[in-house]
Structure formats: C-alpha cells, structure tokens
C-alpha cells in the first residue's frame, strides 16, 4: 500500500468534503460526524463521479404516507442516478451489497483532538 498525503484535516470540517487525486485515483474525503471517510470517486453502479453528489439526509423507513427525515449529513447521493449511499458504511440504501469502494485513511491528529482543530495531514492508502 502506498501512503498518499492528500489534505489537511482542517480542510474538511464536519459535513465537509474534498475530492483529491492520489496517484491515478480520485478519492472523495468526507467528514461524517467528526470522522474522515474516503471513497473512490467511482460509483459502483455506472461509474459516475459519485463523490461529487449531494450530501444530505433522507426519508427513513416509515409507515405508508409518513415521511420521517433522518440520517442528516450521512447520505451521499450519486449525481447520475440518484442512488443513496450511507457515508458511514458506504452501503447503498436499497442494496447494501452494492457499496462505495472505501479507501483506508490515516491522519496525524491525536484521536482525542477534534479533526478540525488539528493541522494534521490526512493520508489515504492505495495499492501500488
């Protein structure tokens, strides 16, 4: 695995996103509730630049004609076909077997210090 320095943690505040290049790959970095998640910027469905999609919440499972908004900030919606992915797991909401390709992340911030207050470098680990 190769360790690519791709951002400063402070570049990605909670709710924030940064799309970076790491070697030949494009990777989307998302701060979801204080944790950095990284995914390849390729939708597993049809190859769209999924990480450029809207981050939002969505309607939760409910009774008929009832709308309950939830998972705020946890949904990445692919810009091409609207598939919703849970940013915490990478799973597609309809078919969890279909998931975003996660990229391991390391950062230099001490775990107890909130990311946005650290100036640590964020690394992604990619083969090669």
């Amino acid at each position: 695995m190769k360790r690519h320095p791709v951002a400063k943690a402070s570049d990605i505040p909670p709710g924030g996103r940064k799309i970076v290049r790491a070697g030949a790959a494009e990777v989307g970095l998302f701060n979801v509730g204080g944790e950095i998640r990284a995914y390849r910027n390729v939708c597993p469905h049809a190859g769209a630049p999924v990480c450029s999609g809207r981050v939002s919440g969505t309607s939760m499972p409910s009774r008929v004609y009832e709308y309950i908004y939830g998972m705020e900030g946890c949904i990445l919606r692919c810009p091409w076909h609207g598939w919703e992915f849970d940013l915490r797991t990478g799973e597609h909401l309809v078919d969890p077997q279909n998931r975003l390709k996660a990229v391991p992340v390391e950062n230099e911030a001490l775990e107890r210090i909130p990311l946005e207050q650290s100036d640590g470098t964020v690394y992604v680990l990619l083969p090669g």
Binding site: H45, T58, S59, M60, P61, S62, R63, V64, Y65, E66, Y67, I68, C78, H81, G82, W83, E84, H92, L93, V94, D95
Partner: peptide, 15 residues
C-alpha cells in the same frame, strides 16, 4: 428506479 428514487416512497421495504 427504486434504487435511485426510493426516498419518495420510504414505506416500501422491498423491491
């Protein structure tokens, strides 16, 4: 369509 537009019909639990 359900795979992309599910959020309009959150009461559906299956395909």
């Amino acid at each position: 369509n359900y795979k992309g537009l599910r959020s309009q019909v959150p009461w559906l639990k299956r395909l």
